[in-house]
């Protein structure tokens, strides 16, 4: 789309917006580390809670951040 402002950079073979990337990293890293540290300290708990929190952060990131891809769908015969 030519009318879009070109403000994305390429990381890991896809286009990302720098501010959104920072938001996404924070949304995943803070719960992961926080969950790990705040969980009760018997062995599997910190890791399990850290993982689940990171995944919740990932879901939130999927909701608040829009993918930077433009799909053009063509019907195939």
């Amino acid at each position: 789309m030519s009318n879009q402002r070109k403000n994305l950079v390429e990381i890991w073979e896809d286009h990302v917006h720098i501010k959104d990337l920072i938001v996404a990293v924070l949304l995943c890293a803070v719960p992961a580390l926080g969950g790990y540290m705040l969980a009760p300290s018997e062995p599997p708990m910190p890791l399990a809670i850290g993982l689940v929190s990171a995944f919740v952060g990932f879901i939130i990131a999927c909701i608040v951040i829009k993918p930077k891809r433009h799909l053009e769908e063509i019907d195939e015969e």
């Binding site: 890991w12 990302v16 996404a24 990293v25 990171a54 999927c62 951040i65 829009k66 993918p67």
Partner: peptide, 17 residues
């Protein structure tokens, strides 16, 4: 539905932890 930023964020988060 899955933004690339979120995928990178998830893996960074796991590595930090």
């Amino acid at each position: 539905l899955v933004p690339h930023e979120a995928l990178i964020g998830l893996f960074m988060g796991l590595v930090f932890m």
